[in-house]
């Protein structure tokens, strides 16, 4: 523990997501090194960096899919991993979009969207279905409400997955490489939906290498390497004037094509 004491006024001064000196190990490997990062409400933060740099682990800690070793992680005023925090409840406020979609294959698109609202949020089914249809229409899939995931393309599945998260009316949306598993022609349809979500004022953390998306909607780009945050700045600063050798090397690789 490098931090002296925990501040008594914790929740008062925090952002929506607040990492303070967070560390995590996988065995002997220090996958998150002393992460300090605060995300304000309605802010969109893009996280990028080479593979294995800890980006996914970073956002997976926020809803407790990964546990942290030490440091404080406060989300929506609640300390993650604190026995007093009801993680199940906290997770209902956090949407998580996976690289591999993870739609429920035995449920239709609409059922995928309404499952958690009905059973977790206890919203009446009729109301949840109405909202679900609206959300699917919003992501451009009004005609696919009764389709099963296997009948949908990757881009369509990912849009259903985003609608599934929005159905819970979350305060935060996390995206873990949402377009990495998609064919190139399907990437933009997913990014368009994400831009729309961002423009509605959602607090978002997005692990992605889609620099066009970052420039368009992100207030901040965070660059990670080897488990640490190396650089952080506005998209313009980061892409035009990267400050470190590592970020310059990374950008030259991903922007070459």
């Amino acid at each position: 523990m490098t931090k002296p004491t925990q501040t008594k006024t914790g929740p008062a001064k925090t952002g929506m997501i607040d990492f303070r000196g967070v560390n995590k190990w996988f065995g002997a490997l220090n996958v998150l090194k002393d992460i300090t990062l605060s995300v304000e409400p309605r802010e969109v933060v893009v996280v990028c960096g080479p593979s294995g740099s800890g980006k996914s682990t970073l956002i997976r800690c926020i809803n407790g899919l990964e546990t942290i070793k030490d440091g404080d992680l406060v989300v929506d005023g609640q300390r993650v991993g604190d026995p007093a925090t009801n993680m199940t409840q906290l997770r209902t406020e956090i949407g998580f979009v996976f690289q591999s979609f993870n739609l429920y294959p035995h449920k239709t698109a609409l059922e995928n969207v309404t499952l958690a609202p009905v059973h977790v949020r206890k919203i009446p089914r009729a109301e949840a279905e109405k909202a679900g249809r609206e959300l699917l229409a919003k992501v451009g899939l009004a005609d696919k409400v009764n389709a099963y995931p296997a009948q949908l393309s990757g881009g369509q599945q990912q849009r259903v997955a985003i609608a599934r998260c929005l159905g819970m009316r979350p305060k935060i949306m996390l995206f873990d490489e949402p377009t990495s598993a998609l064919d190139p022609e399907m990437i933009s349809e997913v990014l368009d939906v994400m831009v729309a979500v961002a423009e509605e004022g959602m607090t978002m953390m997005v692990v992605t290498h889609e620099m066009g998306f970052a420039r368009k909607v992100a207030q901040r780009v965070v660059f990670m390497d080897a488990g640490a945050i190396v650089e952080s700045g506005t998209p313009d600063e980061f892409f035009s004037h990267p400050k470190t050798d590592r970020s310059r090397a990374f950008l030259s690789k991903i922007l070459r094509h």
Partner: peptide, 9 residues
């Protein structure tokens, strides 16, 4: 993971 993330018990 998807069901955990959506707040299911």
């Amino acid at each position: 993971e998807a069901s955990v993330a959506s707040g299911m018990t």
